[in-house]
Design a protein around this nucleic acid. Structure first.
Lengths: 215, 215
DNA sequence: CAAAGAAATGAACCTCAGTTCACATTATGT
DNA sequence: ACATAATGTGAACTGAGGTTCATTTCTTTG
Protein backbone atom coordinates (compact mmCIF):
# COMPACT_ATOMS: atom_id res chain seq x y z
CA UNK A 1 0.00 0.00 0.00
CA UNK A 2 1.81 3.09 -1.17
CA UNK A 3 -0.74 5.64 -2.34
CA UNK A 4 -3.99 6.99 -1.05
CA UNK A 5 -6.05 9.87 -2.35
CA UNK A 6 -5.55 12.63 0.19
CA UNK A 7 -8.07 15.29 1.05
CA UNK A 8 -5.80 17.82 -0.54
CA UNK A 9 -5.66 15.89 -3.78
CA UNK A 10 -9.38 15.45 -3.67
CA UNK A 11 -9.76 19.19 -3.40
CA UNK A 12 -7.38 19.86 -6.22
CA UNK A 13 -9.32 17.42 -8.33
CA UNK A 14 -12.57 19.19 -7.60
CA UNK A 15 -10.87 22.44 -8.24
CA UNK A 16 -9.64 21.35 -11.63
CA UNK A 17 -13.07 20.06 -12.48
CA UNK A 18 -14.58 23.39 -11.62
CA UNK A 19 -11.92 25.23 -13.53
CA UNK A 20 -12.81 23.21 -16.59
CA UNK A 21 -16.49 23.99 -16.17
CA UNK A 22 -15.72 27.65 -15.74
CA UNK A 23 -13.54 27.54 -18.81
CA UNK A 24 -16.47 26.20 -20.79
CA UNK A 25 -18.51 29.12 -19.56
CA UNK A 26 -15.82 31.56 -20.55
CA UNK A 27 -15.18 30.06 -23.97
CA UNK A 28 -18.85 29.67 -24.77
CA UNK A 29 -19.46 33.22 -23.63
CA UNK A 30 -16.83 34.24 -26.15
CA UNK A 31 -17.35 32.09 -29.21
CA UNK A 32 -20.52 30.15 -28.45
CA UNK A 33 -21.01 26.41 -28.39
CA UNK A 34 -20.26 26.25 -32.05
CA UNK A 35 -16.74 27.58 -31.80
CA UNK A 36 -15.98 25.95 -28.48
CA UNK A 37 -13.68 22.98 -28.96
CA UNK A 38 -12.48 20.68 -26.25
CA UNK A 39 -8.90 21.69 -26.91
CA UNK A 40 -9.76 25.36 -26.57
CA UNK A 41 -11.57 24.76 -23.32
CA UNK A 42 -8.66 22.75 -21.98
CA UNK A 43 -6.29 25.54 -22.87
CA UNK A 44 -8.54 28.10 -21.21
CA UNK A 45 -8.65 25.95 -18.10
CA UNK A 46 -4.90 25.57 -18.12
CA UNK A 47 -4.94 21.81 -18.53
CA UNK A 48 -4.18 19.38 -21.30
CA UNK A 49 -6.87 18.02 -23.58
CA UNK A 50 -6.61 14.57 -22.08
CA UNK A 51 -7.24 15.94 -18.61
CA UNK A 52 -10.67 17.06 -19.64
CA UNK A 53 -11.47 13.44 -20.30
CA UNK A 54 -10.38 12.41 -16.81
CA UNK A 55 -13.20 14.55 -15.49
CA UNK A 56 -15.88 14.27 -18.13
CA UNK A 57 -16.77 11.33 -20.32
CA UNK A 58 -17.40 13.38 -23.45
CA UNK A 59 -17.70 16.83 -24.86
CA UNK A 60 -21.45 16.61 -24.81
CA UNK A 61 -21.64 15.78 -21.13
CA UNK A 62 -19.09 18.40 -20.21
CA UNK A 63 -20.95 21.10 -22.05
CA UNK A 64 -24.29 19.93 -20.76
CA UNK A 65 -23.03 20.10 -17.19
CA UNK A 66 -21.63 23.56 -17.79
CA UNK A 67 -24.99 24.68 -19.13
CA UNK A 68 -26.76 23.09 -16.19
CA UNK A 69 -24.52 24.94 -13.77
CA UNK A 70 -25.32 28.29 -15.32
CA UNK A 71 -28.95 27.61 -15.87
CA UNK A 72 -29.43 26.43 -12.31
CA UNK A 73 -27.92 29.63 -11.09
CA UNK A 74 -30.26 31.67 -13.23
CA UNK A 75 -33.22 29.64 -12.07
CA UNK A 76 -32.22 30.35 -8.49
CA UNK A 77 -32.01 34.04 -9.19
CA UNK A 78 -35.41 34.11 -10.84
CA UNK A 79 -36.92 31.93 -8.15
CA UNK A 80 -35.68 34.33 -5.51
CA UNK A 81 -37.30 37.22 -7.32
CA UNK A 82 -40.48 35.21 -7.62
CA UNK A 83 -40.56 34.56 -3.90
CA UNK A 84 -40.14 38.16 -2.89
CA UNK A 85 -43.00 40.22 -1.48
CA UNK A 86 -45.62 41.79 -3.65
CA UNK A 87 -48.50 40.94 -5.89
CA UNK A 88 -48.25 38.08 -8.34
CA UNK A 89 -48.24 40.57 -11.21
CA UNK A 90 -45.40 42.58 -9.86
CA UNK A 91 -43.39 39.50 -9.01
CA UNK A 92 -43.99 38.08 -12.45
CA UNK A 93 -43.02 41.33 -14.06
CA UNK A 94 -39.88 41.44 -11.95
CA UNK A 95 -38.98 37.86 -12.74
CA UNK A 96 -39.37 38.41 -16.46
CA UNK A 97 -37.51 41.68 -16.31
CA UNK A 98 -34.61 40.23 -14.37
CA UNK A 99 -34.34 37.31 -16.74
CA UNK A 100 -34.34 39.58 -19.76
CA UNK A 101 -31.93 42.08 -18.30
CA UNK A 102 -29.44 39.46 -17.28
CA UNK A 103 -29.66 37.86 -20.70
CA UNK A 104 -29.07 41.13 -22.48
CA UNK A 105 -26.10 41.81 -20.27
CA UNK A 106 -24.31 38.53 -20.99
CA UNK A 107 -25.47 38.51 -24.52
CA UNK A 108 -23.35 35.91 -26.26
CA UNK A 109 -23.54 33.51 -23.37
CA UNK A 110 -27.28 33.95 -23.01
CA UNK A 111 -27.83 33.29 -26.66
CA UNK A 112 -25.79 30.13 -26.45
CA UNK A 113 -27.65 28.98 -23.36
CA UNK A 114 -31.07 29.72 -24.77
CA UNK A 115 -30.87 29.04 -28.43
CA UNK A 116 -27.58 28.01 -29.98
CA UNK A 117 -27.52 24.61 -31.63
CA UNK A 118 -25.29 22.21 -29.74
CA UNK A 119 -24.69 18.60 -28.80
CA UNK A 120 -27.68 16.43 -28.05
CA UNK A 121 -26.82 16.32 -24.35
CA UNK A 122 -26.76 20.09 -24.23
CA UNK A 123 -30.15 20.28 -25.87
CA UNK A 124 -31.49 17.84 -23.35
CA UNK A 125 -30.19 19.92 -20.49
CA UNK A 126 -31.69 23.00 -22.07
CA UNK A 127 -35.10 21.43 -22.16
CA UNK A 128 -34.85 20.55 -18.49
CA UNK A 129 -33.97 24.09 -17.53
CA UNK A 130 -36.59 25.63 -19.75
CA UNK A 131 -39.03 23.57 -17.74
CA UNK A 132 -37.44 24.77 -14.53
CA UNK A 133 -37.95 28.39 -15.55
CA UNK A 134 -41.47 27.60 -16.66
CA UNK A 135 -42.12 26.02 -13.28
CA UNK A 136 -41.22 29.26 -11.55
CA UNK A 137 -43.56 31.16 -13.83
CA UNK A 138 -46.24 28.58 -13.30
CA UNK A 139 -46.05 29.12 -9.56
CA UNK A 140 -46.57 32.83 -10.06
CA UNK A 141 -49.49 32.28 -12.39
CA UNK A 142 -51.09 29.95 -9.86
CA UNK A 143 -50.56 32.51 -7.11
CA UNK A 144 -52.18 35.11 -9.27
CA UNK A 145 -55.18 32.97 -10.03
CA UNK A 146 -55.66 31.96 -6.42
CA UNK A 147 -55.43 35.53 -5.25
CA UNK A 148 -57.95 36.60 -7.88
CA UNK A 149 -55.34 38.74 -9.55
CA UNK A 150 -55.32 36.72 -12.75
CA UNK A 151 -58.29 35.23 -14.55
CA UNK A 152 -58.66 31.45 -14.64
CA UNK A 153 -56.35 29.79 -17.14
CA UNK A 154 -54.20 26.73 -17.64
CA UNK A 155 -51.16 27.62 -15.54
CA UNK A 156 -48.85 25.06 -17.10
CA UNK A 157 -49.65 26.11 -20.64
CA UNK A 158 -49.42 29.77 -19.76
CA UNK A 159 -46.06 29.24 -18.12
CA UNK A 160 -44.68 27.43 -21.13
CA UNK A 161 -45.95 30.12 -23.45
CA UNK A 162 -44.48 32.79 -21.20
CA UNK A 163 -41.12 31.09 -21.41
CA UNK A 164 -41.49 30.99 -25.17
CA UNK A 165 -42.49 34.60 -25.50
CA UNK A 166 -39.61 35.58 -23.30
CA UNK A 167 -36.97 33.62 -25.17
CA UNK A 168 -38.22 34.45 -28.61
CA UNK A 169 -38.43 38.09 -27.71
CA UNK A 170 -34.78 37.89 -26.73
CA UNK A 171 -33.31 35.45 -29.23
CA UNK A 172 -33.54 37.69 -32.26
CA UNK A 173 -31.82 40.67 -30.69
CA UNK A 174 -29.33 38.47 -28.83
CA UNK A 175 -28.26 36.53 -31.89
CA UNK A 176 -24.63 37.20 -32.74
CA UNK A 177 -25.46 38.12 -36.30
CA UNK A 178 -27.79 40.87 -35.12
CA UNK A 179 -25.93 44.14 -34.69
CA UNK A 180 -25.71 46.01 -31.42
CA UNK A 181 -28.98 46.25 -29.59
CA UNK A 182 -30.64 49.52 -30.46
CA UNK A 183 -32.72 50.03 -27.34
CA UNK A 184 -32.32 47.46 -24.64
CA UNK A 185 -34.65 49.21 -22.24
CA UNK A 186 -37.52 49.42 -24.66
CA UNK A 187 -37.08 45.81 -25.70
CA UNK A 188 -37.18 44.55 -22.15
CA UNK A 189 -40.19 46.72 -21.39
CA UNK A 190 -42.13 45.47 -24.37
CA UNK A 191 -41.46 41.87 -23.44
CA UNK A 192 -42.44 42.45 -19.84
CA UNK A 193 -45.62 44.19 -20.92
CA UNK A 194 -46.55 41.37 -23.24
CA UNK A 195 -45.93 38.69 -20.67
CA UNK A 196 -47.82 40.46 -17.95
CA UNK A 197 -50.76 41.19 -20.14
CA UNK A 198 -50.85 37.64 -21.44
CA UNK A 199 -51.61 36.16 -18.06
CA UNK A 200 -52.96 38.98 -16.01
CA UNK A 201 -55.48 40.58 -18.29
CA UNK A 202 -59.11 39.96 -18.83
CA UNK A 203 -60.66 39.49 -22.24
CA UNK A 204 -61.43 42.83 -23.82
CA UNK A 205 -63.69 41.60 -26.53
CA UNK A 206 -66.34 40.23 -26.01
CA UNK A 207 -67.23 43.14 -23.73
CA UNK A 208 -65.94 42.99 -20.23
CA UNK A 209 -67.86 42.27 -17.16
CA UNK A 210 -65.64 44.21 -14.93
CA UNK A 211 -66.08 43.34 -11.34
CA UNK A 212 -67.60 39.96 -11.03
CA UNK A 213 -64.52 37.80 -10.47
CA UNK A 214 -62.31 40.26 -8.73
CA UNK A 215 -61.23 39.36 -5.23
CA UNK B 1 -22.61 22.37 -82.34
CA UNK B 2 -23.95 19.08 -81.22
CA UNK B 3 -25.81 19.58 -77.98
CA UNK B 4 -28.31 22.03 -76.68
CA UNK B 5 -30.35 21.87 -73.52
CA UNK B 6 -33.84 21.03 -74.69
CA UNK B 7 -37.02 22.08 -72.98
CA UNK B 8 -37.63 18.47 -72.12
CA UNK B 9 -34.25 18.15 -70.45
CA UNK B 10 -34.82 21.38 -68.65
CA UNK B 11 -38.04 20.01 -67.27
CA UNK B 12 -36.46 16.74 -66.21
CA UNK B 13 -33.79 18.73 -64.46
CA UNK B 14 -36.34 20.78 -62.58
CA UNK B 15 -38.20 17.64 -61.84
CA UNK B 16 -35.20 15.95 -60.36
CA UNK B 17 -34.43 19.04 -58.33
CA UNK B 18 -37.92 19.00 -56.91
CA UNK B 19 -37.76 15.31 -56.25
CA UNK B 20 -34.64 15.89 -54.21
CA UNK B 21 -36.30 18.66 -52.23
CA UNK B 22 -39.32 16.49 -51.63
CA UNK B 23 -37.03 13.69 -50.54
CA UNK B 24 -35.51 15.98 -47.95
CA UNK B 25 -38.99 16.71 -46.68
CA UNK B 26 -39.82 13.04 -46.51
CA UNK B 27 -36.60 12.00 -44.82
CA UNK B 28 -36.63 14.88 -42.36
CA UNK B 29 -40.25 14.13 -41.60
CA UNK B 30 -39.12 10.63 -40.73
CA UNK B 31 -35.80 10.96 -38.94
CA UNK B 32 -35.35 14.70 -38.51
CA UNK B 33 -32.46 16.83 -39.65
CA UNK B 34 -30.16 15.00 -37.37
CA UNK B 35 -30.63 11.62 -39.00
CA UNK B 36 -31.00 12.95 -42.50
CA UNK B 37 -27.84 12.31 -44.50
CA UNK B 38 -27.21 13.37 -48.03
CA UNK B 39 -26.88 9.76 -49.12
CA UNK B 40 -30.21 8.86 -47.55
CA UNK B 41 -31.90 11.77 -49.24
CA UNK B 42 -30.39 10.81 -52.57
CA UNK B 43 -31.63 7.28 -52.15
CA UNK B 44 -35.10 8.50 -51.24
CA UNK B 45 -35.11 10.70 -54.33
CA UNK B 46 -33.94 7.81 -56.48
CA UNK B 47 -30.70 9.46 -57.55
CA UNK B 48 -27.05 9.00 -56.77
CA UNK B 49 -25.31 11.00 -54.11
CA UNK B 50 -23.31 12.92 -56.66
CA UNK B 51 -26.45 14.03 -58.42
CA UNK B 52 -27.54 15.92 -55.37
CA UNK B 53 -24.42 18.00 -55.75
CA UNK B 54 -25.26 18.82 -59.36
CA UNK B 55 -28.33 20.59 -58.06
CA UNK B 56 -27.24 21.97 -54.71
CA UNK B 57 -23.86 23.29 -53.66
CA UNK B 58 -23.91 21.77 -50.19
CA UNK B 59 -25.98 19.88 -47.69
CA UNK B 60 -26.65 23.04 -45.77
CA UNK B 61 -28.05 24.89 -48.73
CA UNK B 62 -30.11 21.94 -49.85
CA UNK B 63 -31.66 21.53 -46.46
CA UNK B 64 -32.16 25.24 -46.05
CA UNK B 65 -33.99 25.42 -49.36
CA UNK B 66 -36.14 22.47 -48.38
CA UNK B 67 -37.03 24.19 -45.15
CA UNK B 68 -37.75 27.42 -46.99
CA UNK B 69 -40.08 25.60 -49.34
CA UNK B 70 -42.10 24.16 -46.52
CA UNK B 71 -42.03 27.21 -44.38
CA UNK B 72 -43.13 29.44 -47.23
CA UNK B 73 -46.07 27.17 -47.80
CA UNK B 74 -47.04 27.36 -44.17
CA UNK B 75 -46.67 31.12 -44.19
CA UNK B 76 -48.99 31.26 -47.17
CA UNK B 77 -51.55 29.15 -45.40
CA UNK B 78 -51.42 31.28 -42.28
CA UNK B 79 -51.46 34.48 -44.29
CA UNK B 80 -54.58 33.32 -46.08
CA UNK B 81 -56.27 32.67 -42.78
CA UNK B 82 -55.16 36.06 -41.56
CA UNK B 83 -56.68 37.76 -44.57
CA UNK B 84 -60.07 36.13 -44.24
CA UNK B 85 -63.11 38.01 -43.01
CA UNK B 86 -63.76 38.64 -39.37
CA UNK B 87 -62.45 40.57 -36.42
CA UNK B 88 -58.76 40.78 -35.76
CA UNK B 89 -59.20 38.60 -32.69
CA UNK B 90 -60.95 35.85 -34.52
CA UNK B 91 -58.49 35.95 -37.38
CA UNK B 92 -55.58 35.85 -34.97
CA UNK B 93 -57.12 32.99 -33.09
CA UNK B 94 -57.69 31.13 -36.34
CA UNK B 95 -54.17 31.76 -37.55
CA UNK B 96 -52.66 30.49 -34.32
CA UNK B 97 -55.00 27.53 -34.24
CA UNK B 98 -54.26 26.55 -37.82
CA UNK B 99 -50.53 26.82 -37.25
CA UNK B 100 -50.72 24.68 -34.14
CA UNK B 101 -53.02 22.09 -35.62
CA UNK B 102 -50.93 21.63 -38.71
CA UNK B 103 -47.80 21.33 -36.61
CA UNK B 104 -49.34 18.71 -34.38
CA UNK B 105 -50.47 16.77 -37.39
CA UNK B 106 -47.03 16.58 -39.03
CA UNK B 107 -45.33 16.28 -35.73
CA UNK B 108 -41.82 15.12 -36.52
CA UNK B 109 -41.51 17.42 -39.49
CA UNK B 110 -42.86 20.37 -37.58
CA UNK B 111 -40.44 19.83 -34.76
CA UNK B 112 -37.56 19.70 -37.18
CA UNK B 113 -38.73 22.84 -38.92
CA UNK B 114 -39.30 24.76 -35.73
CA UNK B 115 -36.68 23.61 -33.34
CA UNK B 116 -34.28 20.86 -34.32
CA UNK B 117 -30.62 21.78 -34.38
CA UNK B 118 -29.24 21.77 -37.89
CA UNK B 119 -26.72 23.28 -40.27
CA UNK B 120 -26.03 26.99 -39.99
CA UNK B 121 -27.80 27.68 -43.29
CA UNK B 122 -30.87 25.92 -42.02
CA UNK B 123 -30.88 27.98 -38.89
CA UNK B 124 -30.56 31.11 -40.94
CA UNK B 125 -33.55 30.12 -43.05
CA UNK B 126 -35.47 29.34 -39.90
CA UNK B 127 -34.92 32.79 -38.55
CA UNK B 128 -36.16 34.31 -41.77
CA UNK B 129 -39.35 32.33 -41.68
CA UNK B 130 -39.95 32.92 -38.03
CA UNK B 131 -39.89 36.57 -38.97
CA UNK B 132 -42.28 35.89 -41.81
CA UNK B 133 -44.75 34.29 -39.45
CA UNK B 134 -44.26 37.08 -36.98
CA UNK B 135 -44.97 39.58 -39.76
CA UNK B 136 -48.35 37.97 -40.36
CA UNK B 137 -49.14 38.18 -36.69
CA UNK B 138 -47.92 41.73 -36.57
CA UNK B 139 -50.35 42.67 -39.30
CA UNK B 140 -53.18 41.21 -37.29
CA UNK B 141 -52.10 42.99 -34.15
CA UNK B 142 -51.95 46.26 -36.04
CA UNK B 143 -55.40 45.65 -37.47
CA UNK B 144 -56.68 45.00 -34.00
CA UNK B 145 -55.18 48.15 -32.59
CA UNK B 146 -56.44 50.29 -35.45
CA UNK B 147 -59.91 48.88 -35.14
CA UNK B 148 -59.89 49.49 -31.40
CA UNK B 149 -60.14 45.79 -30.76
CA UNK B 150 -56.76 45.56 -29.08
CA UNK B 151 -55.22 48.01 -26.68
CA UNK B 152 -52.18 49.99 -27.77
CA UNK B 153 -48.96 47.98 -27.72
CA UNK B 154 -45.75 47.47 -29.62
CA UNK B 155 -46.95 45.34 -32.54
CA UNK B 156 -43.53 44.10 -33.55
CA UNK B 157 -42.63 42.97 -30.07
CA UNK B 158 -46.04 41.42 -29.52
CA UNK B 159 -45.77 39.53 -32.78
CA UNK B 160 -42.35 38.16 -31.91
CA UNK B 161 -43.54 37.12 -28.49
CA UNK B 162 -46.61 35.51 -30.02
CA UNK B 163 -44.41 33.49 -32.30
CA UNK B 164 -42.35 32.49 -29.30
CA UNK B 165 -45.31 31.50 -27.18
CA UNK B 166 -46.68 29.52 -30.06
CA UNK B 167 -43.51 27.61 -30.80
CA UNK B 168 -42.57 26.99 -27.21
CA UNK B 169 -46.06 25.80 -26.46
CA UNK B 170 -45.63 23.31 -29.26
CA UNK B 171 -41.97 22.34 -29.05
CA UNK B 172 -42.15 20.41 -25.82
CA UNK B 173 -45.07 18.22 -26.85
CA UNK B 174 -43.77 17.88 -30.40
CA UNK B 175 -40.30 16.80 -29.38
CA UNK B 176 -39.58 13.25 -30.48
CA UNK B 177 -38.56 12.20 -26.99
CA UNK B 178 -41.94 13.26 -25.60
CA UNK B 179 -44.42 10.42 -25.73
CA UNK B 180 -47.67 10.55 -27.64
CA UNK B 181 -49.57 13.73 -27.15
CA UNK B 182 -52.13 13.26 -24.40
CA UNK B 183 -54.69 15.83 -25.46
CA UNK B 184 -53.99 17.66 -28.64
CA UNK B 185 -57.22 19.59 -28.60
CA UNK B 186 -56.68 20.97 -25.11
CA UNK B 187 -53.09 21.90 -25.89
CA UNK B 188 -54.06 23.85 -28.97
CA UNK B 189 -56.87 25.56 -27.12
CA UNK B 190 -54.64 26.63 -24.27
CA UNK B 191 -52.10 28.08 -26.66
CA UNK B 192 -54.74 29.92 -28.63
CA UNK B 193 -56.25 31.29 -25.45
CA UNK B 194 -52.89 32.51 -24.21
CA UNK B 195 -52.00 34.18 -27.48
CA UNK B 196 -55.31 35.87 -27.86
CA UNK B 197 -55.35 37.15 -24.34
CA UNK B 198 -51.79 38.36 -24.61
CA UNK B 199 -52.60 40.88 -27.29
CA UNK B 200 -56.31 41.40 -27.07
CA UNK B 201 -56.89 41.88 -23.38
CA UNK B 202 -56.86 44.92 -21.24
CA UNK B 203 -54.97 45.15 -18.01
CA UNK B 204 -57.02 43.67 -15.23
CA UNK B 205 -55.12 45.19 -12.40
CA UNK B 206 -54.98 48.18 -12.01
CA UNK B 207 -58.75 48.40 -12.54
CA UNK B 208 -60.07 48.62 -16.04
CA UNK B 209 -61.34 51.61 -17.80
CA UNK B 210 -63.68 49.86 -20.11
CA UNK B 211 -64.86 51.94 -22.98
CA UNK B 212 -62.51 54.76 -23.58
CA UNK B 213 -60.48 53.46 -26.49
CA UNK B 214 -63.05 51.28 -28.21
CA UNK B 215 -64.01 52.36 -31.67
C1' DC C 1 14.75 7.91 -1.16
C1' DA C 2 12.58 4.23 -3.51
C1' DA C 3 8.56 1.91 -4.82
C1' DA C 4 3.88 2.14 -6.27
C1' DG C 5 0.04 4.02 -7.77
C1' DA C 6 -2.62 8.24 -9.66
C1' DA C 7 -3.13 11.97 -12.43
C1' DA C 8 -1.59 14.87 -16.36
C1' DT C 9 -0.02 15.24 -20.89
C1' DG C 10 -0.61 16.06 -25.94
C1' DA C 11 0.53 14.07 -30.26
C1' DA C 12 -1.42 10.44 -32.81
C1' DC C 13 -5.53 8.20 -34.02
C1' DC C 14 -10.08 7.37 -35.58
C1' DT C 15 -14.43 8.15 -37.17
C1' DC C 16 -17.88 9.57 -40.06
C1' DA C 17 -20.50 12.17 -43.03
C1' DG C 18 -19.92 15.72 -46.63
C1' DT C 19 -17.81 16.18 -50.88
C1' DT C 20 -15.37 15.09 -55.17
C1' DC C 21 -14.26 13.31 -59.69
C1' DA C 22 -13.00 9.88 -63.25
C1' DC C 23 -15.94 7.34 -65.68
C1' DA C 24 -20.40 5.75 -67.66
C1' DT C 25 -24.69 7.02 -69.58
C1' DT C 26 -27.85 9.66 -72.03
C1' DA C 27 -29.24 13.44 -75.08
C1' DT C 28 -28.70 16.42 -79.31
C1' DG C 29 -27.70 17.56 -83.97
C1' DT C 30 -25.55 16.49 -88.51
C1' DA D 1 -24.27 6.34 -86.89
C1' DC D 2 -21.04 9.58 -85.02
C1' DA D 3 -19.31 13.46 -82.65
C1' DT D 4 -20.12 16.37 -78.96
C1' DA D 5 -21.57 17.76 -74.73
C1' DA D 6 -24.13 17.51 -70.63
C1' DT D 7 -25.95 14.77 -66.86
C1' DG D 8 -25.69 10.73 -63.69
C1' DT D 9 -22.94 7.69 -60.85
C1' DG D 10 -20.97 5.98 -56.41
C1' DA D 11 -16.61 4.52 -54.56
C1' DA D 12 -12.91 6.90 -52.78
C1' DC D 13 -11.26 10.94 -50.60
C1' DT D 14 -10.94 14.43 -47.07
C1' DG D 15 -10.79 17.18 -43.02
C1' DA D 16 -12.17 18.53 -38.73
C1' DG D 17 -12.48 17.65 -34.32
C1' DG D 18 -13.48 14.32 -30.53
C1' DT D 19 -11.08 10.72 -28.25
C1' DT D 20 -7.33 7.70 -26.82
C1' DC D 21 -3.20 6.00 -24.56
C1' DA D 22 1.87 5.36 -23.98
C1' DT D 23 4.64 8.22 -21.53
C1' DT D 24 5.82 11.59 -18.01
C1' DT D 25 5.08 13.96 -13.80
C1' DC D 26 3.41 14.15 -9.29
C1' DT D 27 1.93 12.18 -4.55
C1' DT D 28 1.94 9.10 -0.94
C1' DT D 29 3.81 5.71 2.13
C1' DG D 30 7.44 2.64 4.34
Amino acid sequence: MAYRRTERVEEQLQDKRNRILQAVRAVVGEVGFNGAQVTTVAEAAGVATGTVYRHFPSKGELFAEALALNAQHEVDVIAAVAQADGSASSRLADAVRVFARRAVRARRLAWAMIAEPAEAEVDAARIIYRRAFAAVFQGLVEDGIEGGEFPPQNPAASATCLMGALSEGLIGPLAPEAGTLPDTRALVNAIVAFCLQAVSARPFNPPLRVVEESQ
